Amino acid sequence: MNELFQLLKQGNRSALTAAIVNTVIAIIKGAAYLFTGNVAMFAETMHSLGDAANQFFVFVGSALSKRAPTDRFPGGFGRLVHLVLLGAVLIVGIMAYETIIEGYHHILHPAESKGIFLIIAILAAATILETFVLIKAMKEILHDAGIEASGFSVVTKSLANFKRGKAATRLVFMEDAVATAGGLLAIAAVLLSHYTPFHEAEGIASMLIGLMMFLVVGKVFLDNARGVLGESDDEMEQKIGEMVMADPDVKDVGDVVVIKEGDELHVELEIEINPQMSFAEADDIKDRIEEQVRQQRGVTDVTIELDEDDGIQRWNNSPEEAKR
């Protein structure tokens, strides 16, 4: 039990924060829906419930993926977070389906909702909270990428470096981006339905929110399917290759492979050195390079293969050429 608590402390904080915030929001929205019968509020309630459950599983999965390797699983549990995320998107998919169906029924049988000011107040408060979580996720992406930013540059830089964020953080970002947009859409639909005869607006908004949720499901599924299979990190491969080539005792880099497993990176290196060096000198070079590679963000495992210099230069600064 103590080991479990220690692992949970290492879970993705953005996911935990988002899960707590969305649980509170879902309870408030659900109570408002029961009072008003507003279909846009129903859509937002389902959305927040799905996000809360999803992000809770993401938090648990990201924590369990930090578990140390065992005799039965010597490769560790890094990919576990991707498996959890694949399961978690099913929850969002179910919520999205229910949201679309409810919106469709409202379009067929439109009705004016009551409690307009209560609905707007709750949706506005929820949207503000979702925006807070979204900004936190943006900052977490920048932290994962090792980039400093402040003010509006947090938004632009987090979007530019989205792929460098951890899988769990990217999911929180996408879900809360959709939640924020969905909140604004719901507010617009409620106002339109209240001040015009176009009561179908709430049903249309519900269906659009459901479709946006399905987009998140598709994106998360594809990203984490690649993670389960073991996706390479081209950017880190190039960075490590250039760093190793800068070592004065390295004559060439034959191959660099960096595999993502959850938040962890596993590195395999093939380097060429002077064949006249002694075993002790070669071992010192290997230890030095391994230490440098391990200092890179996310790297947990390094395998280095030494070979004698054959006089043929294989490594250069082009990622495409370096992988040939």
Rank of each mutant, 00 (worst) to 15 (best):
L4E: 11
Q6L: 14
L8W: 03
N12E: 15
N12S: 13
R13Q: 11
S14V: 00
T17G: 00
A18I: 03
A18F: 04
A19D: 01
A31D: 02
A32Y: 01
L34R: 04
F35I: 13
G37I: 05
A40N: 03
F42I: 03
T45P: 07
D51V: 13
A52D: 10
A53I: 14
A53C: 11
N54A: 07
V58C: 14
S65F: 09
F73R: 08
G75W: 12
G76C: 06
G78A: 10
L80W: 08
V84L: 01
V89M: 12
L90S: 05
A96R: 10
I100S: 07
I101Y: 07
E102W: 00
K114R: 11
K114G: 14
I119V: 15
L123R: 02
A126T: 15
L129C: 14
E130M: 03
F132K: 02
L134Y: 14
E140W: 00
H143C: 03
D144Y: 13
D144W: 11
A145E: 04
A145K: 03
G146T: 11
A149C: 11
S150T: 15
S153D: 05
N161G: 02
K163G: 04
R164V: 01
G165K: 06
K166G: 10
A167Q: 03
A168M: 06
R170M: 06
R170F: 02
L171D: 06
F173R: 02
E175H: 09
T180Y: 05
G182S: 13
A188Q: 01
A189S: 11
V190E: 04
S193A: 15
H194F: 06
H199S: 09
A201L: 10
M213F: 13
M213I: 11
F214A: 11
F214G: 01
V216A: 08
V216P: 05
V220I: 13
F221G: 10
N224C: 13
A225K: 04
R226N: 14
G230V: 08
E237W: 08
E237H: 08
A246I: 04
A246P: 03
P248Y: 03
K251N: 14
D255K: 14
K260Y: 12
H266P: 00
L269V: 08
I273S: 01
I273D: 01
P275D: 12
Q276K: 10
M277K: 12
D284A: 15
I285K: 04
K286Q: 09
D287H: 14
R288E: 10
R288F: 01
R288C: 01
E290W: 06
E291T: 13
E291N: 12
R297A: 15
G298F: 06
V299C: 12
T303R: 09
I304S: 06
E305Q: 14
L306C: 05
E308I: 12
D310G: 02
P319E: 10
E320R: 12
E321K: 12
A322L: 04
K323H: 13
